[in-house]
């Protein structure tokens, strides 16, 4: 595990990234952002359909956090000396569970947006809804199994395999996000392409070092 002993002269960014309070703030603040156009600037483009804005915003944050948490491991593999990458890896569970939390809020908003379960039930055959629901189910499973007791009960090996489903969730979320709109939203690329690049580099590194030392 990642419990490195803090060096006496940790840089400020490292200190901040190690701090749970700081990372929590980074996670919660964007969730409060919709209050600005809804209540303070009263942006009519947002007020025209306020719930749609909230819905998209929460889904967007869930995607960002999912891509973020998945980038932690490759960052550590690619930059093994980096204290920042090490600091980030302390927060894998926090960021992962936050991604799930935003996804849950997103789904709850969707239910209000559709005025109940009716549309969800009739639309469930649509690929964009199915992918969203499967991705959510995966995140739910991973969030539940990140409780200490269940981690132990599962055993490290099974737990690791199960939690690789996060990659499936990311792929589904990317599709879900791009299919929900009339045209392909560029933000999907901004969120998921950097992650894909990190993964490719990480796989390359692992391939070159295969058999020498294994990192996950």
């Amino acid at each position: 595990m990642v419990d490195a002993i803090p060096t006496p002269r940790a840089s400020l960014p490292e200190k901040l990234l190690r701090s749970k309070a700081f990372v929590c703030t980074l996670i919660v603040l964007p969730g409060l952002w919709p209050a600005w156009p809804l209540f303070i600037s009263r942006n009519p483009s947002v007020l025209a359909d306020p719930l749609k804005y909230v819905l998209h915003h929460l889904g967007f944050l869930a995607c960002v956090l999912l891509a973020t948490v998945l980038s932690f491991t490759p960052l550590r593999v690619i930059f093994p000396q980096s204290k920042l990458a090490l600091a980030l890896n302390r927060h894998r569970r926090l960021v992962g569970v936050s991604a799930f939390t935003y996804a849950a809020l997103h789904l709850a908003t969707h239910l209000v947006y559709e005025g109940g379960f009716g549309v969800l039930a009739s639309d469930v055959k649509k690929p964009f809804l199915v992918t969203g629901l499967i991705a959510f189910t995966i995140l739910l499973t991973l969030a539940v199994t990140s409780l200490n007791r269940l981690v132990r009960a599962l055993g490290a090996k099974h737990w690791k395999w199960l939690h690789r489903l996060a990659y499936v969730a990311a792929a589904l979320a990317a599709y879900h996000q791009s299919a929900a709109r009339k045209v392909f939203p560029m933000q999907v690329l901004w969120i998921f392409v950097p992650l894909a690049l990190l993964e490719i580099i990480r796989i390359g590194i692992r391939w070159r070092h295969s058999g020498v030392h294994k990192i996950t």
Partner: peptide, 22 residues
């Protein structure tokens, strides 16, 4: 006749507020 990616059987009314439903 649905859009291939979403239902056309109902609609959100712009200006209806948060709990307008469809």
């Amino acid at each position: 006749v649905d859009h291939p990616r979403w239902s056309q059987s109902s609609e959100r009314v712009i200006g209806g507020g948060i709990f307008a439903g469809r």
